[in-house]
């Protein structure tokens, strides 16, 4: 990378292109600490996921939990669909025989059982896996911070 050329180009583009200038300004901000928690923010906002996981549910009957979970499921599923594109990694049906060729991505495919010898491996697809194909999280939500807000406290003034 020729950094001098890049710097000059960035200089010129910042002068002439407002959108790009904003992106450069963002890039120049000091790194925020911690992970990007926007998805948690949305899962709580539309699906009440944090409330659900943080609640002590042992005391409730199945019917009571079931009634709420239907709504929580709907809300969280909507968030996943709207802000992420989640697709199976392996397109074959679960239970089908599949072949794993040499040079497979070990992060995307995990071998279990009688793993011996060298690829290609023959096996049965037990779980098709998940991957995120696209992320569409809103830019203006806070990503992180020292104590990220997942959901603001609500105070009703009578």
């Amino acid at each position: 990378m020729n950094r001098l050329l890049l710097a000059l180009r960035a200089f010129w583009m910042c002068l002439t292109n407002r959108d790009l200038a904003e992106r450069v300004a963002n890039a120049l901000k000091p790194d925020e600490i911690g992970p990007d928690l926007r998805i948690l923010n949305l899962l709580q906002r539309d699906g009440r996921l944090i409330d659900f996981l943080e609640e002590e549910i042992d005391g409730y009957g199945d019917a009571q939990i079931g009634a709420a979970v239907r709504d929580i499921h709907r809300g969280c599923a909507k968030v996943l669909r709207e802000y992420l594109s989640i697709k199976p990694i392996h397109t074959a049906a679960e239970g089908a025989s599949v072949v794993v060729d040499a040079g497979f991505n070990p992060a995307a495919i995990r071998l279990t059982g009688n793993v011996a010898g060298s690829p290609p491996f023959r096996g049965v697809l037990k779980h098709h896996g998940w991957k995120v194909e696209a992320v569409r999280l809103p830019d203006s939500l806070p990503r992180s911070g020292a104590q990220p807000v997942l959901s603001p406290a609500e105070i009703e003034i009578p």
Binding site: R48, D51, F52, E54, E55, I57, Y60, A63, Q64, I65, A67, A68, R70, D71, I72
Partner: peptide
């Protein structure tokens, strides 16, 4: 069709009306 309104506070299950 079931109609549920989730609990208002952080007690989402306990406060749910069904």
């Amino acid at each position: 069709v079931p109609v549920t309104v989730l609990g208002r506070g952080s007690r989402v299950i306990g406060g749910t009306l069904k």
